[in-house]
Design a protein around this nucleic acid. Structure first.
Lengths: 221, 221
DNA sequence: ACCTGAACACCGTTCAAGT
DNA sequence: ACCTGAACACCGTTCAAGT
């Protein structure tokens, strides 16, 4: 149902203000990136574009559908990354998941939005198409390939949504230490610096991804 | 700063309405579970409790701090799960992560809230304390143990926040198939049933967890 | 002391009107 | 045809007042 936006509002009206759905989506993504989902409102976006709030409703029937369209548009950009290469399956899958993670990481608000908006536009499906192709070639059954891709994707989403968020390592250290006492949490106290560093560590994605790929390799053998 | 709630509002006032912070948190979690974060409002919660909206502000200084307290309270329940057992490190860690996943899955709105609320209350720290202890015993360095736990935890959060959500397998199949064409997505079309099943499959968590644990074992060797 | 209604500055969206 | 202000039913929170 939600996907019918494009057919309900099929073409750009002859705007007197230089408006178009694309222009609105672009500005919407900017506001999301800059101020976050919580600050995103129809009134705020209209102000950004210098138009009346209700003008937006000539291009998108609701805030929800506008957000869906922003998610779709930003997902389509993944296509080029997905159309990659040849080589050993582990390496190809690794590169694909790294590009997924990068794409998710560039727009943190998008990852948040995806929680309630499963992504099924053609552009967004390039990644699972490529991943499933690699997995089946590697020797997984259809069912195992699907479940395995799902595990990889959920890890990438988890990292994008809950991973490092600009917070500095020092801040994290302070936060961890101030909540601890040596009697109740001896190990965490002893590893406070390392735990704080891990929270800010972007390479945790690659660490987890390599654990997953190695575990997959073992399951194939 | 956010954690100072408890000291700013240290005790339950002598309520004429049988109110207490605990009672409010309990009702808040019920509303979150039943209606989701989007529907949660101070007015809605007050209505649920049969009190004036502003009465809530005598117990919690803001909606944000009330939500923090709900997250903390629900996290503390994990303690018992964390105080588990002996045995091989893989098995102990596996059980611990399964209990984390179960706890996160029982209250989906909590997983959503954690996105912007790092959890540092003493109760919530039992799990990382136990996990780090197992990992160091297994032979990981402090830094690798911290990064590895982080990867495991991000996978659990990803599954809780983005995993199966009651949607039936049939619905998922329909949604996947209706977006596909055989020319552009041959593999997905060929595996539509399996891909849809994977989206609804609760055991994907265990699959990914076992991949991670096997990969970790290999890294130790 | 505990509790609360009115009011303010927000929000998404309907509807009727303006060009 | 495209664009929009007023109005409605919401929201979190301040403030002053009620018991």
């Amino acid at each position: 149902m939600r996907r019918s936006t494009a057919t309900v509002f099929p073409h750009t009206p002859a705007s007197r203000l230089g408006l178009s759905r694309e222009r609105i989506l672009e500005a919407g993504l900017e506001v999301l990136d800059r101020e976050g989902l919580a600050a995103f409102s129809m009134r705020r976006l209209a102000e950004e574009l210098g138009i009346g709030t209700m003008t937006l409703y000539g291009y998108f029937p609701s805030k929800d559908l506008l957000l869906d369209a922003i998610v779709d548009a930003s997902a389509t950009k993944l296509v080029s990354a997905a159309t990659a290469t040849s080589g050993p399956w582990k390496q190809r899958l690794r590169e694909l998941m790294l590009s997924v993670r990068q794409a998710l990481g560039e727009h943190p608000a998008i990852a948040e939005l995806r929680r309630t908006r499963p992504l099924l536009s053609p552009g967004a499906l390039e990644v699972p198409e490529a991943a499933m192709s690699i997995l089946i070639e590697a020797g997984f059954t259809k069912a195992d390939a699907a479940r395995t891709y799902r595990a990889l994707y959920l890890f990438a989403l988890g990292f994008a949504a809950y991973g490092p968020r600009g917070r500095s390592e020092d801040t994290a250290t302070f936060e961890v230490q101030s909540a601890l006492s040596a009697e109740t949490h001896p190990v965490l106290v002893d590893t406070a610096r390392e735990s704080a560093a891990a929270m800010a560590d972007e390479t945790v994605f690659e660490l987890g991804l390599d654990y997953l790929l190695d575990g997959m390799e073992r399951a194939l053998a």
